[in-house]
């Protein structure tokens, strides 16, 4: 199968990679780009663990074609820490125990990142809605909600 050249921005870097048409964004990020922070937890679109931002919107990398991201801006969990300093959300998830096993955490934090960018002071209901597509099996979500509030300065 022929490959096509894909040009996009991943975590602030312009990239050009030859990709097969059927390559999923998830596999592109984890395999081609070596960004294994984005996780796969289901067989397609059911758990939210692979949530990344495309042009600032939360999207599921496991049901997105890499080739469809031509010219787009993709952000993953690896992009949030700036100069080695964790972002406010990362700091809060760490300190408030918004993460236990950590497997849903990258997707959860990216979904929360999308929320805080458009709504810096979310209510409980806003947080629940923004994270409603992200399953966590460890925390019961209580400390995840606390973490997002903490990151928002609440």
């Amino acid at each position: 199968m022929t490959k096509r050249l894909l040009a996009l921005t991943v975590n602030g870097r312009m990239r050009e990679d030859a990709v097969a048409a059927n390559l999923l964004l998830l596999d592109y990020l984890r395999g081609t780009a070596g960004l294994t922070g984005t996780k796969q937890g289901c067989d397609g679109g059911e758990c939210g663990a692979c949530t990344v931002l495309i042009d600032g919107q939360p999207r599921l990398a496991c049901i997105t074609l890499a080739a469809a991201c031509e010219g787009r801006v993709v952000e993953t969990i690896e992009s949030l820490a700036i100069e080695g300093r964790m972002s406010r959300l990362q700091q809060a998830f760490h300190e408030k125990l918004g993460t236990q096993c950590g497997f849903c955490t990258p997707g959860m934090i990216m979904a929360a990142e999308a929320l805080l960018r458009r709504n810096p002071r979310p209510t409980d209901a806003d947080i629940r809605e923004a994270l409603s597509g992200n399953l966590c099996r460890c925390t019961g979500y209580v400390k995840i909600i606390e973490s997002v509030h903490a990151a928002a300065g609440g």
Partner: peptide, 19 residues
Amino acid sequence: TPLIDGVEKVTGRARYTAD
């Protein structure tokens, strides 16, 4: 006490088997 391996988890640096 926050988890001593929590930083890896929130930054995406934690390597699970598939990683």
